[in-house]
Write a protein that binds this DNA or RNA. Structure first.
Length: 932
RNA sequence: GCGGAUGUGGUGAAAUUGGUAGACACGCCAGACUUAGGAUCUGGUGCCGAGAGGUGUGCGGGUUCGAGUCCCUCCAUCCGCACCA
């Protein structure tokens, strides 16, 4: 070790620790409302603090948002950049069930660990604004918002949510006969009837109008977890967490009337800057389809079956009807001779889980009810069947079957030998249904000869004229179940009196989570909160408190609003602060929340907007989904002889071999296993016998998986920070590729970035000393600098973080070549780079400006195009589009002069081979192309 | 099946409005220095070819003076939704 190098070394560990401390002491990242500056709100999706800690994938989005937040700050914006924890959740509860430890304790420990790891990365979060969804001072306001939802209904005439009192006033005046409210209420009543209701009856009616309501509904029940799951918490028919089977069950549940917002949730997508992929996912989830609802009279009955169809134009092709097995009419209409068959089919269908039904698409099943419906236009009798391809939960749970125009109806008809009348002109339907959207209708009375589009318009007119239905829009989106039978979640601000749900007064909020003796359901299946003793509740009202807790998405649906005023005890946030910060300008997070969190947060935002609490109805103006960083698992092979084979020693026939994933920390750089380390790792390998390759090594096979503890492929940021520093890790993660792209983690390239930072550091040092020149900068250096300023600004404005890192490398390479140690140039470069590598830049800035508190109080450099002006350009000269040579020419030359210059060169003559070019294209400052 | 995205060297990738394909970095090759250290520096590196040159952005076509970029057909991979009437 050379003595002189000591001062000169880039001692990142010391530098980073120093600035972590100073930033905290100086409150560098604390932000308050400042009306003199434009605001900018940069938000990360807050993490669930799991016991596993952060791996290198987690900070990817945080690094990007941190760079952008710092950039905006240097650009003169007042930047809100907060962080917090989505700290209610299932893993802490399951851990509590296993160990008896209170989830609050585990959660706190995990949060501390997260905080340590986040601090290590040098993020510019204003930690004074931290929120935790499991903190009573936070969930007080989650409960308060629930109350607003409970006290609201959706009025279609105003197209917004309103206070339920307005609806009650209407009921008192005229009942619900002319209501424009969205509801599930089948009952019609006038004012006197309303007044005759008991208060319990009134509440029962109102529940069918409230935005947050109690109703019996089909839910996804997970017996293993003892709770209800939302659709988006189920993946491939099993629970997202734990992979347990899920079944359908009818239960009394709190729900959110998100369906009321279906149209506005669609419309709002037009006004936000999100990717098409994400918008499409939400559109898909909302699932709007236009068509008509039509009533079919059942023969010899006063029942009418309502169906929804997107193809009313095909109504003359209806040859039978199919009801979902659960349809309420089925038992009533079944003829006595068919009743047994029908019941058997219903039982069989009920036994199938949703997953089985999905897996069993090709197997056509159904049963005839023995009943007939009357075709509303032809008067024909059409048989009514039941079949499980018709879903009770979509549309009306009944379809008019048009076998010639729908493949499922076609298959059903073929299978059961039902008629398949053809209503399409010149279409052959002998092999399959005609499902195209372009065609001409035939055999359809007054629709004959019309194309599909005009036939649709015509038939809807006729249907409405006859009073048997109307044009209708249907949505796939279902109301969201809001109850969970769990402990570790927000208690509801609700109690029951004589079975009627009542709200807890604001003054009694929060209803805090009571202590329980175990985090499990009671013996009679009540949720864990039912275990709490009366005294354990912060308030105890009515006959009992609500025992359910809120789902995980409750707290995350509004947390971005709480950051604006996190310590306010009299409102979820102060109105003037909300008016200043408004919505999130940039939101970065994973795409896995596309149909969960991102939809619910939009929904709550719209409700709060409608009720006048906030001034915007879309929470996230711009959203970027960062890609996932994947892990590269190490797979070793165990042969039938129980020996571990090197991956390059496997026989062609791998029969009898099994794969085991081993911890990637046990590998050498060449993917060979450190055998002794493996033996020490797990007892099962203690006496492992190996079959090494010719080099005496046991090689593993690498496979890309999600980065996860269970695949033993986790790389933590901690080790890399220790080894290379946070600045290197930050820049390297950005350098990996475009932010949105998923990519497997590979540490190999990190030295490149680390060497770059060392090279940058060396620009400021010579002969072991910090030394800069104060002379006027060379024009060459100015050009390099301003080129970089321009590139970096452009890159950041389009969120291209990876090319930004390249530009810094190019800049430092050029300055090194120029032997530039000019103070002005390096100051500007340091400000430019500070968002990416805050510690090293802050350190160098403090060396240049010992009096300055922070480089982040400086102003971002602006490109001066004068320094970039060129007088000459190397014209690429191509022949038939192929570049052959370059020619340096004055940029002042006109196109004609360029052409003349090029033609005068011997190289041109060589490539022309004596021919005269047919055409010569000269694009000034770009290219010359000769067409031969 | 429907919807969305992606396909470029040995590797990660760049090319922002159609204008020099492969910037930057890893790796590799050769060299310098050195107490071989994961330090630093120099040169080279798409493929074929000794070279001149040819060829090259998943396949095939098209538009254009000129296509990684625009249009059409197909293929592959990934993601989301899915008996949605």
């Amino acid at each position: 070790m050379c003595f002189l190098q000591a001062n000169m070394d880039y001692t990142f560990n010391l530098i980073e620790a120093k600035w972590r401390k100073l930033w905290q002491e100086r409150n560098t990242y604390k932000v308050t409302e400042d009306l003199t500056k434009p605001k900018f709100y940069v938000l990360d999706m807050f993490p669930y603090p799991s016991g596993a800690g952060l791996h290198v994938g987690h900070p990817l989005g945080y690094i990007a948002s941190d760079i952008y937040a710092r950039y905006k700050r240097l650009k003169g914006f007042n930047v809100l950049h907060p962080m917090g924890y989505d700290s209610f959740g299932l893993p802490a509860e399951q851990y509590a069930i296993q160990t008896g430890q209170h989830p609050a304790i585990t959660t706190k420990e995990n949060i501390n660990r997260y905080r340590q790891q986040l601090d290590l990365m040098g993020f510019s979060f204003d930690w004074s604004r931290e929120v935790r969804t499991s903190d009573p001072s936070y969930y007080k306001w989650t409960q308060w918002i629930f109350k607003q939802l409970f006290n609201a209904y959706y009025d279609t005439s105003a197209d917004k949510a309103r206070d339920i009192e307005i609806l009650v006033a209407q009921f008192e005046k005229e009942g619900n006969l002319h209501t424009t409210a969205i509801h599930d209420c089948e009952q019609q009543f006038d004012a006197p009837t309303w007044h005759s209701f008991t208060s319990a009856q009134k509440e029962e009616v109102l529940q069918q109008y409230r935005m947050a309501y109690l109703a019996e509904s089909w839910v996804n029940w997970c017996p293993a977890l003892g709770t209800v799951l939302a659709n988006d918490e189920i993946v491939n028919g099993v629970s997202e967490r734990g992979g347990h089977p899920v079944e359908q069950k009818r239960m009394m549940q709190w729900s959110m009337r998100i369906k009321a917002y279906a149209e506005r949730l669609l419309e709002g997508l037009e006004r936000v800057d999100w990717t098409d992929a994400l918008k499409e996912q939400q559109r898909n989830w909302i699932g709007k389809s236009k068509g008509a609802s039509v009533h079919f009279v059942v023969k010899n009955s006063n029942l009418q079956i309502e169906v929804f169809t997107t193809r009313p134009d095909t109504i003359f092709g209806v040859s039978f009807m199919v009801l979902a097995p659960e349809h309420p009419f089925v038992n009533e209409i079944s003829s006595p001779d068919q009743a047994a068959t029908i019941q058997a089919y219903q039982q069989q269908a009920a036994l199938k889980t949703e997953r089985d039904r999905q897996a069993d698409v090709k197997n056509i099943t159904g049963a005839f009810t023995g009943a007939y419906a009357i075709h509303p236009f032809t008067g024909a009798e059409i048989p009514i069947w039941i079949g499980d391809y018709v879903l009770a939960s979509y549309g009306t749970g009944a379809v008019m079957a048009v076998p010639c125009g729908d493949q499922r109806d076609y298959d059903f008809a073929k299978h059961f030998g039902l008629a398949i009348p053809n209503i399409f002109a010149d279409q052959d339907i002998s092999a399959s249904a005609f499902t195209e959207k372009e065609g001409v209708i035939a055999n359809s009375d007054f629709l004959n000869g019309l194309d599909i589009k005009s036939a649709t318009e015509r038939i809807i007119d006729e249907i409405e004229r006859k009073g048997i239905g109307q044009g209708k829009t249907n949505y796939r989106l279902r109301d969201a179940v809001f109850s969970r039978q769990r402990y570790w979640g927000e208690p509801f601000p609700v109690y029951y009196k004589d079975g009627v749900p009542m709200l807890v007064e604001d003054t009694q909020l929060p209803v805090t989570l009571p202590e329980v003796d175990a985090y499990l359901p009671t013996e009679d299946g009540e949720p864990p909160l039912a275990r709490a003793a009366k005294e354990a509740w912060s308030c105890q009202l009515g006959d009992r408190m609500e025992y359910n807790t809120m789902p995980g998405w409750a707290g995350s649906s509004w947390y971005f609003l709480r950051y604006i005023d996190p310590h306010n005890d009299s409102a979820f946030a102060d109105a003037s602060k909300l008016a200043y910060w408004k919505q999130v300008d940039l939101y970065i997070g994973g795409s896995e929340h596309a149909t969960g969190h991102l939809l619910y947060a939009r929904f709550w935002t719209k409700v709060l907007f409608d009720l006048g609490f906030i001034s915007f109805d879309e929470p996230f103006a711009k959203l970027i989904n960062q890609g996932m960083i994947l892990g590269k698992s190490a797979i070793a092979f165990i042969g039938p002889d129980q020996k571990m084979y090197s991956a390059d020693m496997l026989p062609a026939n791998k029969e009898g071999f099994r794969e085991v994933r081993i911890l990637i920390d046990l590998l050498n750089d060449d993917d060979s296993i450190q055998l002794d380390a493996l033996k020490a790792w797990q007892p099962q390998f203690a006496n492992q016998v190996f079959v090494p390759n010719a080099q005496g090594k046991v090689i593993v096979q690498r496979e890309v998986d999600k980065m996860s503890k269970r695949w033993y492929n986790v790389v933590t940021p901690d080790d890399l920070c220790e080894k290379y520093g946070a600045d290197t890790l930050r820049m390297y993660e950005m350098f990996l590729g475009p932010l949105e792209q998923s990519k497997p983690w590979d540490t190999k390239g990190i030295t490149g970035v680390h060497n770059f930072l060392k090279k940058y550091w060396r620009l400021f040092h010579s002969d072991g000393k910090f030394e800069l020149s104060t002379e006027a900068p060379s024009s060459q250096a100015l050009k390099t600098l301003h080129k970089t300023i321009k590139k970096l600004t452009d890159d950041l404005d389009r969120f291209s973080f990876n090319t930004g890192v390249s530009s810094f490398m190019i800049c430092v390479n050029e300055l090194t070549e120029q032997k530039c140690n000019n103070r002005h140039i390096l100051e500007q470069l340091t400000i430019l780079m500070a968002p990416y590598a805050p510690h090293i830049c802050e350190e160098l800035w403090s060396l240049m400006h010992p009096e300055a508190a922070s480089i982040f109080n400086e102003t971002y450099p602006i490109c001066n195009p004068d320094f970039l002006k060129e007088s000459t350009f190397d014209y690429p000269v191509s022949f038939n589009g192929k570049m052959r040579f370059k020619l340096s020419l004055e940029l002042s030359l006109s196109a004609a002069e360029v052409e003349a210059e090029v033609l005068s060169k011997p190289e041109t003559q060589k490539w022309l081979e004596g021919k005269t070019p047919k055409k010569i294209i000269v694009v000034h400052g770009k290219i010359v192309n000769m067409v031969l």
